[in-house]
Design a binder for these strands. Structure first.
Lengths: 225, 225
DNA sequence: TTATGTATTATTGTATACAATTATTCTTGT
DNA sequence: ACAAGAATAATTGTATACAATAATACATAA
């Protein structure tokens, strides 16, 4: 999908809107008007509407019939919930990946670990977050389960902004890479049990780090507001 | 969403198409032409396209740019994967529901148990399946987690056809109701631990029943094809 | 002044028109 | 007969036009 999206107006609008919502560039509840968006992107309402309908299905906006579309992005609680959900699913994914991974996928996974260390040493945080994503996406793909891949991929993207923040915490960046390395090794050794255990723990650690570096405060603030 | 959908052409097309794909009324890989669908439903291409874009995002169809839309429904393996995924999430959901359920939701849940027994005794299998859905949907809603509700609700719908089949197996129908009753009781008693444990087991039992009543054969058949 | 009903405007929902791309058919030359 | 290429048709992608609904502004009466 990602790639197809670049070659159609609808795809471009969808990707940009999605990113802007996930990264919080819109206010919660903000109204999205089709004409305005169309003008902004230099397209007609048709592709805008198709993009909006997709975002509605995904739950990133809420559409009221004959009224309008309202931003309904990722709250701090959503992020926490997603970490909890992922902590139950990433282990399953690692198990299945161990059973189904191809040689080519294994190589890509190991390269991702290698490259993240490379960028870590140079403090390229954006690049690191990107490769961190890649590691997980490869594992999702390797699971051989279309449905598991779909849900984990979505959730992983939803916490992108938080992850990018967390990875900049120096010690977490290093620890995360080390955890990835161990997971990759377990998968390579065909030790499904260990891969599952490590993956679940990996997510719980990431959640703990997010809580300790801003997420907890965000939760408090949103609970009041 | 469900209700809004009834009042717009796009919504009606979406719901009907979705149901037809989930229940397997289309061939795998079958091409869906916008004009043909429009004629079938007596509408123009516009609402059809919006519906197709939503189904694409959901992964129920695959769209090739400038070519067409192809059915990519729920395979037997998808169903099995979904049971595995749900077995890891329903427990979490039951735990959260125990913590967040309202009095009104609890009453609806108990009524669902009661009603399913009523219809069970009268062998109203369709009605039973419907109320079985209701039980789970109430729990998803009661979890208080928008994201968990979303994913579990989708997955639950995906296995609808299988569930309807399974529930007709006399002994499973009775067992399932009993399990629901115990889960509801645990939630009411605020015993999150027990609710979680029972819910996870409930899904595993449902999976086992599905395997023993047709799913295993479907898996074999699809593996060859 | 304020409530109420009406006209106006703005916005979404749908249909249609046109452009771009892909598939198909029909030549045509060997 | 068959391959290559052009012409034609079919299909999707996008823009625009029109219809239906909701929001707003305004006038009028109590």
């Amino acid at each position: 999908m990602e790639e197809n999206d670049r070659y159609s107006l609808r795809g471009r609008v969808f990707s940009k809107l999605r990113e802007d919502i996930i990264t919080g560039r819109y206010e919660q509840g903000e109204e999205l008007k089709e004409s305005a968006l169309g003008e902004e992107y230099g397209v007609s309402r048709t592709p805008v509407r198709e993009a909006l309908r997709q975002l509605e299905l995904e739950g990133l906006i809420r559409m009221v019939p004959n009224k309008g579309a309202y931003v309904d992005g990722i709250s701090a609680k959503d992020v926490l919930d997603i970490y909890e959900i992922r902590s139950r699913l990433e282990g399953l994914c690692a198990r299945w990946a161990t059973e189904h991974i191809t040689h080519e996928q294994m190589e890509r996974m190991e390269e991702a670990v290698y490259m993240s260390e490379f960028h870590y040493r140079r403090s390229h945080f954006d690049k690191m977050a990107e490769i961190d994503s890649e590691f997980h996406e490869i594992m999702y793909e390797a699971s051989g389960s279309k449905k598991l891949q779909h849900v984990l991929s979505d959730f992983h993207q939803y916490v992108y902004s938080v992850r990018k923040m967390s990875v900049q915490v120096h010690t977490r960046g290093k620890t995360s890479i080390e955890e990835h390395r161990q997971i990759a090794q377990a998968i390579k050794n065909k030790d499904a049990q260990l891969a599952e255990q490590l993956s679940n723990k990996h997510i719980l650690n990431a959640m703990q780090n997010a809580l300790d570096n801003g997420l907890r405060e965000m939760l408090q603030k949103q609970k009041k507001g």
